[in-house]
């Protein structure tokens, strides 16, 4: 079987497109983990509720896109803050396992809310990305894939720049290293926790809008979170750069395997990578473990 070069290129680009959305969602996961050390199993459902809120504004209330997107992000921030205040903060002094369990409960809560308000039926988001396919050399890229990639990439570029140059990035990293020491230098640690959940909810909602505009929305779309967990484990739970690279790579790998070996091999490939990384580098490719001076 001769594999055409152009086919490889197109499949790769499509895979990287999906991968960029995994990467963006992975970044949302990492922000929470970095600041609070909470493993948030509900990241896929936070993405889902963002997509539905967007649906509510753009289809339900028929608001224009330029209003629906910012409104969605604001509502997402409020939801993120609410989750942190009511479900996470009261438990932060307890052991990590109980917080982890709470995020499992959170998945059901968010799914329940969506099914109550919008029912379990799959829906389509209003078309808002240009529908012309994008031509890169000879390769066709479906327009939604291409534009969502561009938006996801821009969002990540903004996030990385902000964390590199803004003092708040240092507050986040200081809190991640040592909470008591962070308070002792004047950092508002509970504020950092709230902020990280709000920011993560915003990022996840943006990813939700993009994922939904490519593949439609349903109360089951939180399953996207499963691939994201693989991404963050491979990239390192606390590494934004790791989420980015692992997201693109796993998106690409799944597309290639799905196209040239068959869809049933996708998961096999993904989890093989996961296992190999866990064995070789338990902290993930870019994850950090503490500096130890010997």
């Amino acid at each position: 079987m001769a594999v055409e070069f152009i086919d490889i290129v197109e499949t790769s680009l499509a895979g990287i497109g999906t991968g960029s959305l995994m990467a963006l969602t992975g970044v949302a996961f990492v922000i929470i983990y970095k600041a609070t050390k909470v493993i948030n199993l509900a990241i896929g459902e936070m993405l889902m509720i963002g997509a539905f809120v967007f649906y509510g504004f753009s289809a339900g209330l028929a608001l224009p896109i330029w209003a629906s997107v910012p409104l969605t992000l604001v509502v997402a921030a409020l939801i993120g803050g609410l989750i942190e205040r009511t479900m996470i903060r009261p438990l932060l002094k307890d052991n990590p396992v109980s917080v982890f369990m709470v995020t499992i409960g959170l998945t059901s809560v968010l799914i329940g809310v969506v099914e109550l308000v919008w029912s379990a039926e799959p829906r389509r988001l209003p078309e808002f990305l240009p529908s012309q396919p994008v031509l890169l050399g000879d390769a066709f890229i479906p327009s939604k894939t291409a534009y969502s990639f561009v938006i996801a990439a821009a969002a990540m570029a903004v996030l990385i720049t902000v964390f590199a140059f803004w003092r708040g990035g240092i507050a986040l990293r200081a809190t991640a290293t040592d909470r008591a020491a962070a308070s002792s230098v004047g950092i508002d640690v509970p504020g950092v926790f709230s902020f990280s959940w709000m920011l993560a909810a915003v990022v996840a909602a943006l990813a939700g809008i993009l994922v939904g505009s490519v593949g439609g929305i349903s109360s089951a779309m939180g399953l996207f979170g499963l691939s994201v967990f693989v991404v963050v484990i491979v990239g390192g739970l606390d590494s934004i750069l790791g989420a980015l690279i692992a997201g693109l790579f796993i998106g690409w790998l799944e597309a290639m395997v799905g196209r040239f070996m068959g869809g049933e091999f996708k998961l096999l490939a993904t989890f093989t990578i996961l296992l190999v990384v866990l064995v070789v580098r338990p902290y993930g490719l870019f994850g950090t473990h503490e500096i130890e001076r010997l």
């Binding site: 240092i170 507050a171 990293r173 290293t177 950092i187 950090t288 503490e290």
Partner: peptide, 12 residues
């Protein structure tokens, strides 16, 4: 803060 630079520690 071990994984921050000296200057970033002061910035914190």
């Amino acid at each position: 803060f071990g994984d921050l630079t000296v200057e970033e520690n002061l910035t914190a």
